[in-house]
Nucleic acid binder design. Structure first.
Lengths: 234, 234
DNA sequence: GCAAGTATGTTTGAATTCAAACAAAGAGGT
DNA sequence: ACCTCTTTGTTTGAATTCAAACATACTTGC
């Protein structure tokens, strides 16, 4: 782990990702750079198939995924795995635990690819610094929006999970994903097992339903690609 | 609906509730009063068994429940009801939708008792006013904490819902509630139907499980009161 | 006190899901 | 090319849940 400013070339590489992150919306490249220095952002790397954070840990940093992919998961004592969300470059995680002092993580974050992570101390982010950092205000507004969007994301997951049948959970999720991506033809960020863990159903039962839905002509799927028939969203 | 400052006696009545709301943590009575004026808080009343907000609405206000109780629910086209959370005096709602411009409510808020609601415009809350309002900073920090806590609350609900069996969903929820209230003997804010809708299971199946759990000596329950046996939380 | 309505527990058969196994296809390494 | 490991789909019987009844308190209003 090292200070951001010491490695300008890495910062530059990340800028393209950070610019897409809602936390930095409305900030210029220079302003993002200044903010990160002001806040004291740090970079860490994490190997594939390793935990980035584990349930039980404490953290006072909001983490931005700069490269790679990861899953936010919950695992119980019997090995049942619940996939809370998937993380793509530009996504952030651990922010609610960082915002509450001494909060213990109830989830783990697992790298599904080699990852680079930008860590931002929450206290420094939400504590106004001197007038030298004029865009700090904007950052804090962005943070609030980011929290709100995460809440809506969980809202959506709950909507899918609230359906009683595997079939309805699938259609609820796939319809929402089509809406989000603005097309009936889209890729999902999960493999079959991960999707089952996200919807909290058995992979086998889900596979059966996917087959049925295809036979009924409601959708086509190959691996992580889906094409919904227009009447699948009813 | 009327301006808060025009009805000092009502404001005073609400102060005891607002003081307990995390949004005003660390503020004195006077500071809360000043803030509410500064932000332009308004009061509305809502009759029992009426919707306070309905899915499809837009709002730019975070709402604080000052008196009464309510449920945040989702209803689908087939009448299936999903209870997202229950609301008690001091709780707030609609904040993620208020924080995102033009966001459409995906949930409804239903008054289960006569309610009084304090509405605070989100834009005015997160936009710094002049130096005259020195505790605005604190308010914004509190707002971030509030968002974080709401996220953790949804996290918990997802944890319960992720269990595959009704029995496990029940034990997950009841254990969490016991932990939150710091006692194995506690009341829940739901009746049986509401609890079933919160855990997304059939009320009948849930009743069966509750009976089994009682026969096994893992818990005792009468209406909304529960007493967990110490080994129920394993 | 009575009637109507509500909340809770119980029962039942049908539908669904779980859980474990297996087969087939594909990816990756040697 | 070959072997191994992973991913995905399929099958099966057992367990669970759904869905719709119904019975029994308990409320509420008159």
């Amino acid at each position: 782990m090292f200070e951001f400013k010491q490695r300008g070339e890495i910062l530059e590489k990340f800028l393209n990702v950070l610019k897409k992150c809602p936390l930095f919306a409305g900030l210029s490249d220079d302003e993002i750079l200044t903010s990160l220095k002001c806040i004291g952002a740090k970079v860490r790397k994490n190997a594939k198939n390793q935990y980035i954070l584990q349930a039980g840990d404490c953290t006072d940093c909001i983490s931005l995924l700069a490269s790679g992919t990861a899953l936010v998961i919950q695992e119980d004592l019997w090995g049942n795995r619940n996939v809370m969300t998937n993380l793509m470059p530009g996504d952030y995680f651990a922010e609610p635990f960082a915002a509450i002092p001494d909060a213990v993580l109830s989830v783990s974050v697992f790298a599904t690819e080699n990852c680079e992570i930008v860590e931002i101390n929450m206290n420094r982010l939400i504590t106004m610094c001197s007038a030298a950092c004029s865009h700090h205000n904007r950052l804090i507004k962005n943070l609030i929006t980011a929290f709100a969007q995460k809440t809506l994301l969980f809202n959506e997951k709950i909507t899918h999970m609230s359906k009683r049948k595997t079939r309805d959970k699938l259609l609820s999720y796939l319809s929402a994903e089509a809406a989000r991506q603005g097309s009936l033809s889209f890729d999902i960020p999960f493999d079959r097992q991960q999707l089952a863990d996200f919807l909290c159903v058995e992979r086998a039962a889900m596979s059966v339903e996917l087959s049925k839905l295809q036979k009924e002509g409601l959708l086509k799927t190959f691996h992580s690609h889906f094409e919904l028939s227009p009447n699948a969203t009813n």
